[in-house]
Simulated assay, not measured.
Amino acid sequence: MPRRRSYDQYCASARALDVVGDRWTLLIVRELLAGPRRYTDLHADLPGVSTDMLAGRLKDMEGAALVTRRRLPPPASAYVYELTPRGRELLPVLRALAEWGAPELEEPRPTDAVRAHWFAIPLIGALEGVVTGVVQVIVDEGDFHVRIGGDGPSSYGDGPPADPADVLLRTDSATCRALAGGEVTLAEAVRDGRIEVVGDGPPAGELRARLLPVPVN
């Protein structure tokens, strides 16, 4: 499908922006990195986007081979959008943007919408090297899960994982923001009581043993 617009510059960055530089496109990618979504779900988690704009962006992304649309089997019989392998390759791009943009968060503005899974991308960096497996994170706004380590790159999903998580963390959006901005480490947040490691299984116990100070007799 021919591009509707282009910078017409023989530059890799310009070519990338030809594909994903339009308003809302990368935020749609952010939503779909959390898993396949119905159109209505996408619209609900992208406050401010019009239905015409969302439909147009999804059509453009299908044409650019970033997104595919498929029908779920009965009894659902609904259509969902999901990223292609090419689309999923944008996760490092969004991670870099989140790291760069974290200092801009400051305190939420009265007009700011908040979704729990929006904290997943900046938290991946804070969890890598400390936790391995599936981590479910519960905040006041809801929960999400992050998959760290394993055979593929780190990933995330909205809501709880399909199977029980290896580790469950309970915290709040302010701590997530501090982790994203590098103001506090995961170990410091656990030691200060800002993050609670929930569960009695081996992964949770190992994480506590790694992060909490050893009592001195």
Rank of each mutant, 00 (worst) to 15 (best):
R5S: 05
S6E: 03
S6H: 04
Y7K: 01
D8V: 06
D8W: 02
D8E: 07
Y10C: 00
A12S: 06
A14P: 05
L17K: 00
D18R: 04
V19G: 03
G21H: 03
L26K: 04
L26A: 10
I28G: 00
V29R: 01
L32Y: 03
L32E: 06
L33H: 07
T40W: 09
T40V: 14
H43A: 15
P47A: 07
G48D: 08
V49Q: 10
D52M: 07
D52T: 11
L54H: 07
L54A: 14
G56T: 14
G56S: 13
G56W: 10
R57A: 13
D60M: 13
M61E: 09
E62G: 10
G63D: 15
A64L: 08
A65V: 11
L66T: 06
V67Q: 12
R69K: 13
R70H: 11
R70Y: 13
R71L: 14
P73S: 08
P75D: 12
A76M: 14
Y81C: 07
E82Q: 05
R86N: 04
R86I: 00
G87Y: 02
G87D: 02
G87I: 00
L90V: 08
P92K: 00
L94V: 08
R95N: 04
A96E: 00
A96H: 03
A96D: 01
L97C: 01
W100T: 11
G101T: 14
G101P: 00
A102E: 05
P103G: 11
E107Y: 14
E107I: 03
R109P: 03
P110W: 15
T111Q: 07
D112Y: 00
R115Q: 08
F119G: 02
A120K: 03
A120Y: 02
A120L: 00
P122G: 01
L127M: 08
E128M: 09
V130N: 03
V131E: 10
T132G: 02
T132N: 06
Q136G: 04
D140S: 02
G142L: 08
D143G: 01
D143P: 07
H145Q: 12
H145S: 04
R147C: 09
R147A: 12
G150W: 14
S154I: 08
S154C: 12
S155V: 09
Y156A: 10
D158K: 14
P164M: 12
P164H: 12
A165T: 03
L169R: 02
S173G: 14
A174W: 10
A174S: 06
A174T: 09
T175P: 01
R177F: 13
A178D: 07
G182I: 07
E183Y: 06
V184P: 05
L186F: 11
V190L: 09
V190R: 09
R191N: 04
R191G: 03
R194M: 13
R194Y: 10
R194T: 01
R194N: 06
I195D: 08
E196D: 11
V198L: 06
G199Y: 05
D200G: 06
P202V: 01
P202W: 09
P202D: 03
A204S: 11
A204Q: 00
L207D: 02
R208C: 15
R208L: 15
A209N: 14
R210D: 13
L212P: 00
